[in-house]
């Protein structure tokens, strides 16, 4: 079986946008893996995940996702974008729409464009959306508007939207850093369990090594756009964590995050 993600000598630098650079990143991820990216702010975690999602271009190197080469000059085809689910730190939900509508939005890459614009959702789409709501424990919130929900509930909606894409690869960019510690563990457990049941590969980034240790089988440490270590979770030592974080704080200010 081919790898879910294969990255060779990936470089990215775009000074004007202020995005962190990536420097000679090489990484391969087998299907079904649960991998955590850890590292300080500015290490390039978000850049790497956005790039794998096909929304960041003009990079150099070779990248293939789910067996197909990624083109650094154009967006991936719709079906491929639907295969790759993305979970955002700030949830990225349509605030004034219902929970169900937001989850159905995850189906938009799977249905014909004209049907997406005109028709009501099909029975199949509704069934997929409802099972995603059930997996995230929010069936009873289906008709609520997103702007009436708490942070933890919002991230559940965002995960349900991602699951309704029926993704084979789930990329989660700091999915729990806007949540309190109890909610954070709950959400990561939900996400990794749903991915495991579906046989999907999961890559999530976190600036909390203890959460990475609990929910990932493999941990990749990044700093200044480079991979510092790539080890099974059991081998993560204080020393390895220190290599990513220590005196990185001297050059990169730790980001303070508000807990909603």
């Amino acid at each position: 079986m081919t790898e879910a993600v294969r990255i060779e000598e990936l470089c990215f630098s775009h000074v004007a946008s202020g995005l962190p650079t990536l420097d000679q990143v090489t990484l391969s991820i087998p299907p079904g893996e649960a991998l955590a990216l850890i590292g300080p702010s500015g290490a390039g975690k978000t850049t790497l995940l956005t790039l794998l999602d096909g929304r960041l271009r003009a990079w150099r190197g070779r990248v293939s996702v789910l067996g197909d080469a990624l083109d650094p000059d154009r967006a991936p085809p719709r079906a491929r974008r639907a295969d790759t689910g993305f979970i955002f730190q700030d949830f990225a939900l349509v605030e004034r729409a219902s929970v169900l509508r937001n989850v159905l939005n995850g189906r938009l890459g799977r249905i014909r464009p004209l049907r997406a614009l005109l028709g009501r959702p099909s029975k199949d789409d509704l069934a997929v959306a409802r099972s995603a709501l059930a997996d995230c424990g929010i069936v009873d919130l289906a008709e609520r508007r997103v702007d009436s929900l708490s942070g933890g509930q919002r991230q559940r909606v965002a995960i349900a939207r991602c699951l309704s894409q029926e993704p084979r690869l789930i990329l989660a960019d700091e999915p729990v850093s806007n949540l309190d510690p109890a909610r954070a563990a709950e959400i990561l457990s939900l996400l990794t369990e749903a991915a495991r049941q579906r046989g999907a590969t999961t890559v999530f980034s976190s600036h909390q090594p203890d959460l990475a240790r609990r929910f990932a089988r493999r941990i990749v440490g990044m700093r200044n756009g480079r991979i510092v270590f790539d080890i099974p979770t059991a081998e993560l030592t204080e020393d390895a964590t220190a290599r990513v974080y220590d005196d990185a704080n001297a050059t990169v200010q730790p980001r303070l995050k508000a807990v909603p």
Binding site: D53, G54, R55, A75, R78, A79, R80, R81, A82, T84, G85, F86, F88, D90, F91, A92, L93, V94, R96, A97, R101, N105, G106, R107, L108, G109, R110, P113, A116, L117, A158, R161, Q165
Partner: peptide, 23 residues
């Protein structure tokens, strides 16, 4: 954010307009 999320899900430009920008 929601526009990027729909782009990521594979929604076309008109679907993004209809479901992320218009609401």
């Amino acid at each position: 954010g929601p526009i990027a999320a729909l782009e990521s899900a594979g929604a076309g430009p008109l679907a993004r307009l209809r479901y992320a920008i218009w609401p």
